[in-house]
Amino acid sequence: MYIKTQGKAGTLRNLICLRKFLVNTDETMTATKFMPLIDVELRSAWPNEAQDFTPWLFENIDFLSEAVGMSLEAREKEKNIQNLFADIVAEDSLSGELVLIENQLESSDEKHLGQIMSYLAGIDAKRVIWVASNFRDPHRSAIRWLNEHTREEYSFFAVRVRAVQIGESPLAPIFEVVEKPNEWERSLREAGVAASELTILRTRFWETYSKKYPDTVGLSRGSTVWVPMFPDKSIVLSLNVGKNFCGMFLRGNLGADNQELIQFFAPHDELLSEHFGENSRAARGVHYGSWRGIALQDEAKWDELIEWMEAKRKEYLEVFSEIEPPSNLSD
């Protein structure tokens, strides 16, 4: 609002108009109501850690991805590792690294810290995310010590989980990183350049594959494309393209129990091994894999790689035509 007037009378009128404007603005502003952000007891959101929180985090892992700066894809939950059960095993789709996620709805404790150390001895994961409602100082110090004294390829995170609400709004999750590796943001920026280039290559590769065999694979920006072996998708063939090698392997659908998969494959081991070699990486959830030492960056060999992958895919399907679908694989 601007009124151009002259003299004292004009100045007075300007002041009166300004006062009216400020009063009206104040009334408008006071009409907007603001409510405080309230922390809610975590058990109100997820009554049971194993039955409620772990499955929810498995299906909504993007919340955690954004907090830690990774592109996480949940792979398995309650994974059996040396008679202990890791809450979630995920994969960072940009780097291809396995990520171990251990969560609890209470404050951090020695039990979960010890379990993390045990899991690392039994799984090929170099990144660990420990989620808890709060972290005690000794446990924050332990995570800090691990980041400072383990090899550079290992990364440890302590992440606080909160459930919040405004008024009567739905609950919202918040993940706050309280401990992380030194120079993590800088490494993310540096890795982001290489990762974005790798993502572009992967996208172009799958586009090339899809143009040649449109009924086989869809478009993807990630390292893997899944091809179901059975109509119920209980077992899938994971086609994988990586920096140094490419190939495929059998695995369960998201959340499948790996021990149940091993039991299912056991009666068919002779048939599967005859075609695809020994099931040597079964403990890691990678079953009967076939690999070629062709790097994704070697674009001159893409046609050769696609033809090999397509022939192998058909071989897997042909072998599985002789196998009855499982009836008891849990999700």
Rank of each mutant, 00 (worst) to 15 (best):
Q6D: 15
Q6C: 09
K8D: 10
L12Y: 07
L15S: 11
C17D: 14
R19K: 13
N24W: 05
D26C: 12
E27Y: 08
T30E: 13
T32W: 11
P36A: 02
E41Y: 10
E49A: 08
F53P: 02
T54Y: 04
N60M: 03
I61M: 09
V68C: 12
G69T: 08
M70I: 07
M70P: 01
A74L: 01
A74V: 03
K79A: 11
A86G: 09
A86N: 04
A90L: 06
S95I: 04
L100A: 06
E106S: 15
K111I: 10
A121D: 09
D124E: 12
V128A: 10
A132H: 08
A132T: 09
R136F: 10
P138R: 09
W145N: 06
W145V: 03
N147D: 02
N147H: 02
T150W: 09
E153F: 06
S155W: 06
F156D: 05
R162Q: 13
A163N: 05
G167Y: 10
S169Y: 07
I174S: 07
K180D: 01
N182M: 12
N182S: 13
R186P: 00
A194M: 07
A194R: 13
A195N: 15
R202G: 07
F205C: 04
K212I: 08
D215A: 10
G222E: 05
P231Q: 01
D232L: 01
V236K: 00
S238L: 07
N240E: 12
L250W: 00
L254Q: 07
E260M: 11
F264N: 05
P267T: 01
L271M: 15
E278H: 10
S280K: 15
A283N: 10
G285T: 05
G285D: 06
Y288L: 08
G289D: 15
Q297N: 14
Q297P: 01
E299N: 10
A300T: 14
W302D: 03
A311C: 04
A311S: 14
A311Q: 14
E322S: 12
I323N: 02
E324D: 13
L329P: 01
S330K: 13
